[in-house]
Design a protein around this nucleic acid. Structure first.
Lengths: 174, 174
DNA sequence: TGATAATCGTTATGGATCATATCAAATTCA
DNA sequence: TGAATTTGATATGATCCATAACGATTATCA
């Protein structure tokens, strides 16, 4: 049983003495810096964790050359074939102008196609190509078995689920 | 007692029927898009939550015109007076070249000063000015009472602490 | 000691991400 | 029909993030 308990790691230790640094003392403490209130800031931890997780995501799917953003676009296309650019971009929080270049990239790699809609000739129906589908399938497998697997290992399934739930909560209603 | 339980909100509901979309049907589902596996991706939730929290941070200290990054720099200066640019930048994950302009901004607003070190005339000892100290103090008060207060309200103290601990864990050892 | 290497802050530069205004074509609406 | 709206697209600028290189200074060590 891999021990997973988040509630007693090493939080409240009364901040061991380090050596007081005098403001006028140049050679003050050559060691690590004091993080001060930063250690208690949720936003700070959130940002650092997000960077780490994205780094690992990139490494994990590096063979497929997919960024998290690109992966999410392909995923939405698979789950919502035929939607147009505005719809996909909006649900991902991407601004339409910025979505154009992104799609150009995916389309030039033949992972998806823009098809003029018959009902509204302004909009493009987006859909995966076969290549896009198999690429996405490989990405999904890598993500779940390796990337998310590592997260599960480090946090434990229960904590992982609780974490996801809290993050979703923040994302939706904060 | 404000009810805070993260373990039973609305997770595993068997995905209510929405209306199957045919790939060839243009007018398929005009409603919200299916997020698919995206809802279960920690990285995705992490990113969205981080954006929301940073937004709120900015709003909260908007009167002081401080970004999260600037706030963290001032905080490190207060907790480690006399450290040089490389040290502060490194502990925050900021690259030295990018730290220059950032410091220029803070120094031009007279929130901090660069002082040539007597022991090593290459480096600058960084320290807050009085204005920097009072600005930081105001920021801290706003952050803890309003920003973090809201987070505590939404998550509940216990969940908030667990969240912070898991995020710190990810930030350090993932 | 003196030559060489390393470090510090800095500049320049390029890539990626993000935001706004604007446009032509197509559609909707009054 | 004419005005307003929507869609994809272009242009553009701000903000980050990353790398290479430089002058000044300090450290290394032959």
């Amino acid at each position: 049983m891999t021990a997973h308990k988040v509630a007693q790691l090493d939080s409240p230790k009364p901040a061991r003495m380090v050596r007081e640094a005098s403001p006028l003392d140049d050679t003050a403490g050559a060691g690590a810096l004091k993080m001060g209130e930063l250690s208690g800031l949720l936003g700070y931890a959130l940002k650092r964790a997000q960077l780490k997780v994205f780094e690992d995501f990139l490494r994990t799917v590096s063979s497929l050359q997919l960024t998290p953003a690109q992966f999410s676009v392909l995923l939405l296309m698979e789950n919502n074939p035929g939607r147009n650019q505005t719809e996909i971009a909006n649900t991902l929080g991407i601004l339409r102008p910025n979505f154009v270049a992104m799609l150009d990239g995916l389309e030039s790699r033949e992972l998806c196609v823009r098809v003029r809609s018959a009902h509204d000739r302004r909009s493009h129906n987006l859909m995966l190509t076969d290549k896009g589908r198999t690429t996405l399938a490989r990405a999904k497998k890598l993500i779940t078995t390796k990337h998310e697997g590592r997260l599960n290992e480090l946090l434990g399934p229960a904590n992982r689920d609780a974490l996801l739930q809290m993050l979703s909560m923040l994302a939706e209603e904060f």
